[in-house]
Design a protein around this nucleic acid. Structure first.
Lengths: 329, 329
DNA sequence: CTGAAAGCGCTAACAC
DNA sequence: GTGTTAGCGCTTTCAG
């Protein structure tokens, strides 16, 4: 099929292209019979408006860029799903970018986003990309951050206060006398881990205790499991906190295989909640972070920003819910 | 920052916009000092070419559309990662679309894709969307299919022959006298399941047997696990084949909890290989389907189609590898 | 209610 | 080497 333009339709319908433009945009100032003629022509020719040309003329693309980390596509997938679902409702297209390693690369992505003239960008990325965001705001892109806040630049965000989650959790265990709490490092989510540490530390300090059980996985280990299998040979804790399900799972397996029954002698929880948490044995206790909602709310916010709707909050906190399963008592 | 165009750069550098165009496109016919002047102006003004305008002028967008199912983002995530990584290399942007339920919706997606004038579309979707693909080819979009073949329309594809995988597997078990093989239904992957059934059926027929153990999960059940917990109360098989890891996992849990030890009294395998397969206990045997590669190869193929490179095959078969773990003997 | 024409930002002949 | 100009396909005043 040859490229058919608005011009061809105009010819076919014996009207001017302005009129065709009016009917495809649903402007009411077209007579009924003219509209019918145009619609017939559109149908006959199989005409579909060229979004690129529209984008150029209108100075907007109705597409927004989504930046996510390359790794851990489980909850990332949920976020994408949520975001895409509401994007669909508001007729926005999504350009997906992943950030692999290397500062250079991230700059290229930013450059790409700028060139592509998307209407806005949603970023779910654990590493706070301060400078890159700065660059983006310079080019007037509305930005919505998922997961972390950056109030300074007046960017909008949707997040869950996992620092508080960790704080409350630690408080509870401390009050029960279970003070040997450890957090497992997660290189891919350093920002999140820092929040966890801050939360637990706060709980400890309020009880005149000092928190220092940070389990660092040496870079040489290919997997947390590999390291933990050794670690638990002579160490154990009351409670282990991990960020991702897979790390908690590694801990459970490593513990059990070292004859440290979970949860009897050691409890383990993770922050992220995926369907696997309920499928593994013992079932994994976790905070239900509403990943899908994070994406959905972020996109909804973006539409508000784009449509200049006045709205209450630029920073929306979504709540978490601790979901006890079998890896805690 | 005000919108800065090629025109502003031209003014600033005291050259014509044609020259600016030449330097941003790296054409060699620009004198060194002019180039330097232009580059300085670009830098000073913070100019970034408008990809939309370029797209309109060049009739190509250097973005390709990727269509994936909404569900099961685990291996989908891998595919996306693979695709994105090679897209990055060749400087293509990715527009991500998910197909939720409803035939109406899928048509809208197609329409969107057509309007967005992407250079090509990669589809990973279990439901063979014959008519929709037809529509796409009508508009001259190069198409690469992931996972299933559709030779009729001369569309390119990358796939794994899971029918043969199932066939070989069944053959092996039959020869050992383990003939009670069952396949678990998977509504979200009907095409894949059909291939599995065909493969097993073939193996059975070649042995003068009839295959009929198809475990259908009634729609009323919220999860396979819920149904299987009951199912295994009075039924068992030699081997259970599932498509996704989560279903196999459900089967393992349901079996074990009904005192059918896996793999001792019943073996279970799944087709899809995710990291969870190695993390659950017992570890889940599976076919290693190279999800990442499926995405990567598909995108590579797309670039070949777009650059008109002559190439050997429009249909690339990737190999699978059976990876025995603990859920099989 | 409809048409003519300018402009969105850039590329690519075609001149000079 | 560099500038001029005609599109690319569409929207949007501004006339009529």
């Amino acid at each position: 099929m040859k490229r058919v333009t608005i011009y061809d339709v105009a010819n076919e319908a014996k009207v001017s292209l302005a009129t065709v433009s009016r009917v495809i945009n649903g402007l009411e100032i077209v007579r009924e019979d003219t509209r019918a003629r145009v619609e017939l022509a559109i149908e006959k020719l199989g005409y579909k408006p060229n979004a690129i040309a529209q984008g150029l003329a209108l100075q907007k693309t109705t597409t927004i860029a989504l930046v996510v980390p390359e790794a851990s596509f489980n909850y990332t997938g949920q976020i994408i799903n949520g975001l895409l679902d509401v994007a669909k409702i508001y007729k926005y297209n999504i350009m997906l970018h992943t950030t692999t390693e290397g500062i250079l690369e991230i700059n290229e992505i930013i450059e790409n986003i700028i060139k592509s003239r998307v209407d806005g960008v949603v970023i779910f990325n654990d590493k706070l990309l301060y400078n890159e965001l700065k660059e983006l705001t310079k080019y007037q892109f509305p930005i919505v951050l998922i997961g972390n806040r950056m109030s300074e630049n007046n960017v909008a965000c949707v997040y869950v206060d996992i620092e508080r989650a960790a704080y409350e959790l630690a408080l509870q265990y401390i009050s029960r006398g279970q003070k040997d709490i450890a957090i497992i490092q997660d290189r891919k989510n350093s920002y999140a881990i820092n929040q966890l540490i801050r939360g637990v530390t706060r709980a400890f300090e309020e009880n005149q205790l000092k928190f220092e059980q940070y389990i660092e996985i040496p870079a040489m280990y290919r997997s947390s499991y590999e390291f933990l299998s050794n670690y638990f040979k002579d160490k154990r804790h009351d409670l282990i906190i991990a960020y991702r399900d897979s790390q908690a799972l590694a801990a459970i397996n490593a513990a059990n295989e070292n004859n440290i029954p979970v949860p009897k002698e050691m409890e383990i929880i993770c922050v992220i909640d995926t369907k696997y948490n309920a499928m593994v044995r013992p079932r994994l206790s976790s905070f239900s972070i509403p990943s899908y909602d994070l994406g959905a709310v972020a996109m909804r916010m973006m539409t508000k920003l784009l449509h200049q709707e006045v709205f209450e909050e630029r920073e929306i906190e979504l709540s978490y819910l601790f979901t006890p399963r079998q890896s805690t008592k």
